[in-house]
Amino acid sequence: MDIKLFTGHKNRPHVVALAGNPNVGKSTIFNALTGLRQHTGNWPGKTVNNARGTFSYKNKSFLLVDLPGTYSLLARSVEEEIARDFICFGQPDLTIVVLAASSLERNLNLALQVLEITPRVVICVNLLDEAKKNNIYVDLEGLSKRLGVPAIGTVARTGQGLDELLEAVAARIEDPGTNQPRQVVYSQEVEEIVAFLIPQVQRLVGTAINPRWLALRLLDSDRAFIEKIVQHFNPQLCIGTSSEISFDQHLEAVI
C-alpha cells in the first residue's frame, strides 16, 4: 500500500480519491472516467485494492484512486483501513464521495465521516434512475447547502452528469473554498469530552489533521490508528508504542 507514492512530486497529477459504500456504482464511475477496464461487481467488497487510473480534463491530468467500498471509516476491516488511510495520509487533492440516491441516509453516514477528515470533497449522488424508479428524488441543491460541499447527481451507467462531476472536481481543486463543511453535531456528553481533548490532541499532531476528528477517534478507542497517525505526523512521540499486527500474527492469534 504505497500511499505516499504520489506526494512530493512537483508536477504530479491531481490525485482524486473515489470513496463510497459498496454497490453505489463507484467502479462504474471509475471506468467511465478513466476508461480502464476494471471489472465492476454488484456485491460488497469487490474492489479489494486501490485501483488507479488516469484521465485528463481541461488540459489537467488527474490520477483517480478507487478506494474499496466501505460503510464507514470507523471499524477495523482491511477495506476500511485502506480507504481511511488513503484519505488520511495519502492526502488526495480531492475525494469524491459517491452516494446511492435510493439509500441516501446510510450513505450519508460515510460522507459525514469523510467531511470530518477533509473539506476537499465533492459529493456524487449516483443511481438517480434507480431512485426515480422507487419514487425517490434527491434535492441536490439542498444537499450541497447542508453539507457545505458541491453535490452532483449522476447516472453513471449512461454517463449522465459525469461532465458536471468533472467540472465540479476541477473547480473544487482549483478553489477549495474557505467554508468549513458540515460537521457532525454530537450529543452533549460527547461534545464536552471532545472540547476537552482537542487542545491535548493538537499538541501531538499540530494542525496536520483535524484535531476534532482525532479526538473522536481517541474516544473510539482505536489505539492502533491513533499511533499510526501520531507516528505519521510526529514520529518521536510514540517510539515503542507501535502495535502493527501482521496478517500472520493476527492469524496465529486467532487460531
Binding site: 460503510y71 464507514s72 470507523l74 471499524a75 477495523r76 476491516s77 441516509e105 446510510r106 453516514n109
Partner: peptide
C-alpha cells in the same frame, strides 16, 4: 467487538 461495530455502522 467487531460485529457490534459493523452492525452499528450499517445504521
Amino acid at each position: 467487538g467487531l460485529l457490534r461495530r459493523r452492525v452499528l455502522d450499517l445504521g
